[in-house]
Design a protein around this nucleic acid. Structure first.
Length: 427
RNA sequence: GGAGAGAUGGCCGAGCUGGUCGAAGGCGCUCCCCUGCUAAGGGAGUAUGGGGCUAAACACUCCAUCGAGGGUUCGAAUCCCUCUCUCUCCGCCA
């Protein structure tokens, strides 16, 4: 949610900045609603004030034993009028809120302006794409040869876009997860958290998945109104909801491993092969809650933390600053990390690191007491994948494959696999 | 799953035979005074969100909030209904 005061004070400025990300802000509609809101709210409060004063004078009169009839006659009709105005105000506020909840965040000034992914700006590259003396296999082939990556079994059990891992590949996924958690907790100052995988609608509204992106979510049957988490971002960021932090409490740095569930409605036909786009995948997520003036330094640091995983795993990647048109709904600025996939001969997203500024914090009512003003003000929130484990597994298989179909295990990961330095097809 | 109890400000805790209660009292915290150190004592202040006013802020003022939502009433922390959560006992269970 944008700052309602800013939206009121400078709607055209907001509209201009939102236009760079392809969102058209209906300034007239907003102004009309705002005008009605102001009139109705003022009127409501006047009537409430009148009611309160009347009630008090009746109370006094009763205490003094005076006749209440004339006073009661005086307030007749006031209640009905108040009720009517309140109802109208409620409707306008609901409409205003519904509109505000669907307005995306303002892009930061440093975000390159452009209509789509084509305008994204590469900021750096790390590592050399491997050159093979043979035809590079993709992770699906490699997985099949190694044994233990079974899409057919998953389809039988659940349907398309699931995978069953067995044996060394299941262990490899677990090893990757452990490695990432250890790196972030030991070297990057994050605290590991364990959180619910089912969350309520309020939590999803807080981080921005609702109301706009309900079709991407799996809702759980029954009347509890719960959803499967699409990312750990939701429960972890909601740790800050309805809280007021003291300056000394910040920054909060959390790392969390969870499965993620995405319905990916409408995405069928794209990236259908392999573990790249699944309904269920593992992810290690980094979340930070920081004082506003720290947030852009925190974004750089958080991105470095995610990059450190790729470097330790010796996976070539590039870092891309998303342009205004490619930015996610809630983000003010985003760096995507794209890892090299040899079989496709291209870089593909494996992490997305974003600063949401106060956009989520305002929806969450996540605040800190700014020592400069002494008042509660929204914090800034950030998150990034550190990393998506399924895609990391796929990238690792593909980048470290050998001519014989075996896969080299990078040194950093070996302690998590009992010292194994390669995994090969069963003898 | 069954039975019962409860949810009040940063914390504890009164109020709950409806009226001057946004809420006693205590603790904590902040500021001031006093005290030649530490201790003790006196005074003032100390919730959150929103509206109006303002170029903005301060100040001022109004509204809302006593778990959430609805209802009764001129008036609800107090009465009624629904929901959520917490605690105790029993059962079940990884």
């Amino acid at each position: 949610m944008l700052d309602p005061r800013l939206l009121r004070a400078d709607p055209h400025g907001c509209a201009e900045r939102l236009a760079t990300r392809g969102y058209r802000l209906d300034v007239e509609r907003l102004a009309a609603l705002e005008e009605r809101r102001k009139a109705l709210q003022t009127r409501t409060q006047e009537l409430q004030n009148e009611r309160n004063r009347n009630a008090k004078s009746i109370g006094r009169a009763k205490a003094e034993g005076r006749d209440l009839a004339p006073l009661l006659a005086q307030v007749e009709g006031l209640g009905a009028e108040l009720k009517a105005v309140e109802a109208e105000l409620g409707a306008v506020l609901a409409e205003l809120e519904a509109l505000q909840l669907t307005i995306p965040n303002l892009p930061h000034a440093s975000v390159p302006v452009g209509p789509d992914a084509g305008a994204n700006r590469e900021v750096r590259r790390w590592g050399e794409p491997p050159r093979f003396e043979f035809e590079a296999r993709d992770h699906v082939d490699l997985g099949a040869r190694l044994g233990g990556m079974d899409f057919e079994a998953a389809a039988r059990i659940s349907g398309a876009r699931f995978v069953v891992l067995r044996g060394v590949l299941a262990r490899l996924q677990r090893a990757l997860t452990q490695f990432m958690l250890d790196l972030h907790t030991r070297s990057h100052g994050y605290t590991e958290v364990y959180v619910p995988y089912l969350v309520n609608a309020t939590s999803l509204r807080g981080t921005g998945q609702l109301p706009k992106f309900e079709e991407d979510l799996f809702a759980v049957r029954g009347d509890a109104g719960l959803y499967l988490i699409p990312t750990a971002e939701v429960p972890v960021t909601n740790l800050a909801r309805e809280r007021i932090f003291e300056p000394g409490d910040l920054p909060l740095r959390y790392v969390c491993h969870t499965p993620c569930f995405r319905s990916e409605a409408g995405a069928y036909g794209k990236d259908t092969r392999g573990m790249i786009r699944q309904h269920q995948f593992e992810k290690v997520e980094l979340v930070q809650v920081v004082a506003p003036e720290e947030s852009y330094a925190a974004l750089e640091a958080l991105t470095d933390h995610a990059e450190a995983v790729l470097q330790a795993l010796e996976l070539p990647y590039r870092t891309v600053a998303l342009c205004t048109g490619d930015l996610g709904f809630a983000a003010a600025k985003t760096y995507d990390l794209e890892v090299w996939f040899p079989a496709q001969g291209t870089y593909r997203e494996i992490s997305s690191c974003s600063n949401f500024e106060a956009f989520q914090a305002r929806r969450l009512q996540a605040r800190w007491r700014n020592p400069a003003t002494g008042k509660p003000e929204p914090v800034h929130t950030l998150n990034g994948s550190g990393l998506a484990v399924g895609r990391t597994l796929a990238a690792l298989l593909e980048n470290h494959q050998q001519a014989d179909g075996a896969v080299r295990i990078p040194a950093a990961l070996r302690p998590y696999l009992g010292g194994l330095d390669r995994i090969g097809p069963p003898a």
